[in-house]
């Protein structure tokens, strides 16, 4: 079948459609930089979706739990061996994503006789200053999107991930409009929660292209009863390990006005 180039293109397109359908219901994940660090937030649907990868690297993922686990284990193994043989300072998200994860994801995606990874990941690496924070989204086909500056836009200090492209884009335009990098943890958490709400509304309303009104976001956010999962990467931590998941108690006290 794949001897013919056209068939191969068709097979890859089918596979993309299949994966997109599988991922379309993933609960959004927002990562937002604030003055003292980066906060990750999502609403759990019973399983953990935010993970510690290494001292300064965190990951959020949506997709099939089996595939997420394989990728998570692989990236932790890579980071840990690098940190052990060289030093923790030599572990970099950029290298992990570009040299190790992306080529493998691409190959698995395009080899149409094998199974692709049903997963989409959002990574963040905390830097010494907010300018050095790295947010990186990795797609099932190996494509990478970062927060770096481009011709059309300045560097962003947030990252978003959702089940559909439209939902992700809406989250990003919301964060671009609402988020300030000098925010406190409390403000950042609120903005991130609103971004999650925007993403989730877009998933429910198929084909949404416009940001919902502020009141609509607020009323939708007030419906959130619990199940918030949040983790932070602390910029000024005295210890080497910057990752910490927030306890339910902390989240409650940070989200109540």
């Amino acid at each position: 079948m794949i001897e013919e180039p056209y068939r191969w293109v068709e097979a890859v397109a089918n596979r993309r459609e299949y994966i997109e359908t599988q991922l379309a219901h993933g609960s959004p994940i927002a990562a937002v930089g604030y003055s003292q660090g980066i906060v990750f937030i999502t609403l759990g649907r019973t399983r953990q979706k935010l993970f510690e990868i290494y001292d300064r690297i965190a990951m959020g993922a949506i997709g099939h739990p089996g595939d997420i686990e394989r990728l998570r284990m692989a990236v932790i193994e890579l980071a840990s061996t690098e940190g052990f043989t060289r030093s923790a300072a030599d572990v970099s998200l950029r290298r992990l994503a570009y040299y190790s994860l992306s080529p493998v994801l691409k190959a698995a995606f395009e080899q149409i006789y094998g199974a692709p990874y049903l997963a989409r990941m959002l990574f963040a690496e905390i830097g010494d200053t907010p300018e050095n924070d790295l947010f990186l989204r990795l797609e099932y086909d190996g494509a990478i999107a970062t927060n770096g500056a481009s011709l059309a836009e300045t560097q962003k200090n947030f990252g978003a991930l959702s089940g559909t492209r439209a939902s992700t884009e809406l989250m990003e335009s919301f964060l671009k409009r609402e988020h300030k990098s000098a925010a406190t943890l409390r403000d950042a958490l609120k903005t991130a929660l609103d971004a999650w709400t925007v993403g989730n509304m877009a998933l429910a309303e198929d084909g949404a292209r416009e940001l919902p009104a502020k009141e609509a976001i607020a009323s939708e956010r007030d419906k959130i009863a619990g199940g918030i999962e949040a983790a932070i990467l602390d910029r000024d931590a005295k210890t080497a390990i910057r990752y910490r998941s927030l306890t339910g108690e902390e989240i409650r006290s940070l989200t109540t006005r």
Binding site: R70, L71, A74, S80, T81, F84, T85
Partner: peptide, 25 residues
């Protein structure tokens, strides 16, 4: 290529010393 990332994937039960041994470190 899938196996390349997963080489000797132990289902996450490997301890770190076993990982180092596998990698010859």
């Amino acid at each position: 290529p899938r196996a390349a990332l997963d080489q000797g994937f132990g289902g996450g039960v490997d301890d770190f010393a076993a990982l180092l041994r596998r990698k010859g470190l």
